[in-house]
Design a binder for these strands. Structure first.
Length: 104
DNA sequence: GTTGTGACACATT
DNA sequence: AAATGTGCCACAA
């Protein structure tokens, strides 16, 4: 079985409410800093959108994925704001909202 | 088995 | 600062 995706999903699942993580960060936490692209693919297939909040994952610029658009970027932004994350012009303040595991 | 693509990231131009 | 190119890994055709 592909453990790769499992690890990625596991990390995304651990992102707390009101927090966001970058693809690179998820990849790094998953165990491989070069899986950023794979992370995007993994979320694309997203077998469990109910347990895997893919909308909490943003690119390194802190911007929501422009290709997300499964109903408009507006959708992802709305979900984030519903969690308490302020989104400005499709951008989130990573300084404030980027998830910092263990560091706290 | 080879080629092309992609919800990214980093380096260089 | 913005745009382009390269690297990376996994998957579909």
């Amino acid at each position: 079985m592909g453990d790769t995706f499992e690890k990625i999903y596991d990390v995304v699942r651990e992102i707390p409410v009101g927090r966001v993580a970058t693809y690179g960060q998820v990849a790094l936490l998953a165990g491989n800093p070069r899986w950023a692209r794979v992370v995007g693919y993994a979320l694309h297939v997203n077998p469990d959108p109910d347990g895997i909040p893919c909308y909490r994952v943003v690119n390194r610029s802190g911007r929501v994925s422009p290709a997300f658009a499964f109903g408009g970027e507006n959708r992802q932004i709305a979900l984030l704001e519903a969690e308490g994350v302020l989104v400005t012009d499709a951008y989130v303040d990573l300084k404030k909202y980027q998830w910092q595991p263990d560091l706290r």
